[in-house]
Design a protein around this nucleic acid. Structure first.
Lengths: 226, 226
DNA sequence: CCACATTTGTACGTATGTATC
DNA sequence: CGATACATACGTACAAATGTG
């Protein structure tokens, strides 16, 4: 067997992108058209397309077609879940990564973001003061990353938040009141530093914030094991 | 058709892991055994296993079997290549992420790494002074991340280095001599700060290093377009 | 609202290639 | 060499979603 014809499918799509004939959001040729163009069966075309789908390069819509997309995050989330399950990584590791991304985003945001953007973060923070929900906490951090404006950091950060989200929710709802107060204190301090364009103080506030979260997660997990 | 039997395969493997009956490196039941146990065809089993393979959860070895592994990085690399191709991210974005990871790893390493570990980095740096190769540059940064000891940062950092590696190689070999001198200067400064456990100075050195690299990449890309 | 063609989704069976042991 | 196990491809059938007339 000559083998690897499904790699040809990937390569063909890749070349269409490289030649500028396909862009993000575009619909691919139908699977039957591809199978005729490349002289392979539809099943083989599907194997190739599913490879691309598993990398988040395209998205299939039943009854409609295959479209170029960018949902790498989706598969990143699943990978992270399995890595957690296999004990290859832990929540502390995920949080270290979130901390690294947030610090870098903050440094960029301090130099680039507008007062209006800061205001929108204040509104999210105000809502969190009222609801004390994990969703608003996630929105706050996602908003901070967004200010950095880096697409890769946003994708990875979103995936990390998704994976750790449930845990944060449990910690927030069952954790000590003191921790909640500290969390929202540090949120406010971060925004104040952002407004006053104080880079180092802001980074210190972010570091303190994650120290608090890390400590609480550790404490909460120890409690679960009893 | 009852559909989604290939998801059952994923779920079954997942449950085997969760129940502690399968660990990293273990060999899975044969495809025929799985197809009998779950009452599906071998092709369906393969569909399920390939889903897991695409997430880096398992690795297939022809003639031997399917093994639980952790090569999420491999697929991360391919995703990143496509994202670059589609213009969803650029090299600057990748470098921002590398900078963020390296800064965080450095902060951890300063507090935790041994003199022997620092010595091994000096040896890599000595080799780079001689060879001025992209490989030793990559080894230097990988070593720095390694000192941080975080598995997630290592995986993501390796993938990023892989994607940007060729570009770094071209920049190093065709770039200005002045840039090479600056690069190795900053490498040495980073190691000196690590030895002297000077956190902030070390972070500043890392930031300077990436500023140099970013500027050179920008300059080099502009040159390519002429 | 219905009917219909199109397109992808899923599964099965079969055949053959190829690496491992 | 032979048995085992995965790799790849093809063909077929039907399900389900979409879009259109």
């Amino acid at each position: 067997m000559e083998e690897e014809r499904c790699q040809d499918v990937c390569g063909y799509i890749r070349s269409l992108i490289a030649r500028g004939e396909l862009h993000l959001g575009d619909r691919l040729p139908t699977e039957r058209a591809l199978s005729q163009a490349l002289g392979v069966s539809r099943g083989t075309v599907r194997d190739g397309l599913r490879l691309l789908e598993s990398m988040g390069v395209l998205e299939s819509r039943q009854g409609s077609g295959n479209y170029l997309s960018n949902n790498m995050g989706h598969y990143l989330v699943q990978s992270l879940h399995f890595m957690l399950l296999l004990g290859e990584i832990d929540y502390a590791s995920i949080n270290r990564m979130r901390r690294a991304i947030e610090l870098q985003s903050f440094r960029i945001a301090v130099q680039a973001c507008s007062p209006a953007q800061i205001q929108s973060l204040w509104r999210i923070q105000d809502e969190m003061e009222r609801t004390r929900s994990a969703e608003t906490d996630e929105a706050f951090h996602a908003g901070l990353i967004e200010l950095g404006g880096d697409p890769l950091m946003r994708i990875i950060s979103d995936a990390l938040s998704d994976v750790i989200g449930r845990l944060i929710g449990q910690v927030l709802s069952h954790g000590a009141q003191e921790m909640l107060v500290q969390t929202m204190d540090s949120h406010r301090r971060i925004l104040e530093c952002l407004e006053q364009r104080r880079v180092e103080a802001g980074c210190a506030a972010i570091a303190r914030h994650y120290d608090i979260v890390d400590a609480e997660i550790t404490r909460w997990q120890a409690e679960q094991n009893t």
